[in-house]
Deep mutational scan, measured.
Amino acid sequence: KVLVLALYDYQEKSPREVTMKKGDILTLLNSTNKDWWKVEVNGRQGFVPAAYVKVL
Rank of each mutant, 00 (worst) to 15 (best):
P15W: 12
I25H: 07
D9R: 03
G23V: 00
V53F: 08
V55T: 07
V18K: 02
V4T: 03
N30W: 07
T32D: 15
N33A: 10
L3N: 09
L56M: 07
G43C: 06
V48Q: 00
K1V: 15
F47K: 03
L56H: 08
Y8R: 11
T27A: 09
L56R: 03
S14G: 13
V2E: 12
K13P: 05
D35Y: 12
V41P: 01
E40D: 14
P15M: 11
G23C: 05
P15T: 10
M20K: 00
T32H: 14
E17R: 05
L28F: 03
R44V: 13
L29M: 12
E40V: 08
V53R: 00
N42S: 10
K54H: 15
D35L: 08
V2D: 14
A6S: 06
T27E: 15
L56S: 06
D24T: 10
A50T: 06
V2Y: 11
D9I: 02
K54Q: 15
V18C: 05
V48K: 00
F47R: 04
V2K: 11
V55I: 15
D9Q: 03
L26N: 01
W37C: 03
L3W: 11
M20Y: 02
L26P: 02
R16T: 15
S14N: 13
G46Y: 03
L5M: 08
V2S: 10
V2N: 14
A50E: 04
N33E: 15
K1G: 15
N42P: 09
D24L: 06
L3I: 07
L28Q: 01
N33D: 14
D24E: 08
L7C: 05
E40Q: 09
L26C: 07
K38I: 13
F47L: 11
L28G: 01
G46K: 02
Q45H: 08
T32C: 06
K21Y: 10
A6R: 00
E17D: 08
G46M: 04
L29D: 02
V18T: 07
W36H: 03
P49N: 02
E17M: 05
P15C: 06
L26G: 13
M20A: 02
L56C: 06
Y10R: 04
D24V: 04
D35T: 10
K54I: 10
L3S: 10
D9V: 02
S31D: 15
Y8H: 11
Q45G: 08
S31C: 05
V55M: 13
N42W: 09
S14L: 08
D9T: 09
L56W: 07
G46E: 02
A50Y: 03
G23D: 12
T19Y: 04
Q45C: 07
D35A: 12
L5D: 01
L29R: 04
V4Y: 09
V2Q: 15
Y10I: 01
Q11Y: 10
D9K: 03
P15L: 10
W36K: 03
Y10H: 05
S31W: 09
A51D: 10
L28Y: 02
T32E: 14
L56Y: 10
V41C: 04
V41I: 15
A50G: 05
A51M: 13
N30T: 08
S14Y: 09
L7N: 03
L26D: 00
K21H: 13
N33L: 09
Y52E: 02
W36D: 02
P15D: 10
P49T: 01
A50V: 06
N30S: 12
V48F: 00
K38N: 08
V39E: 00
L7K: 05
L7I: 14
T32I: 11
E40L: 09
R16L: 13
R44D: 06
S31R: 07
D35K: 14
Y8M: 15
V18L: 15
G43V: 05
V4I: 07
M20Q: 02
Y10N: 01
K34Q: 10
E12D: 06
M20P: 00
W36V: 03
E12G: 15
L7P: 00
L29Y: 05
T19M: 04
L26F: 09
R16I: 15
D9F: 04
V55P: 13
L3H: 10
V55K: 11
L29E: 04
N42Q: 13
T32K: 09
V55A: 12
K21I: 14
S31T: 09
L28S: 02
L28K: 02
Q11L: 07
V2A: 10
Y8L: 14
A6Q: 00
L26T: 01
R44L: 09
V41W: 11
T27R: 10
N30A: 11
P49M: 03
K1E: 12
F47H: 08
L5K: 11
W36E: 05
R44H: 14
L7H: 03
V41F: 15
G43Y: 07
A51L: 11
V48T: 02
K21S: 14
L28M: 06
I25N: 03
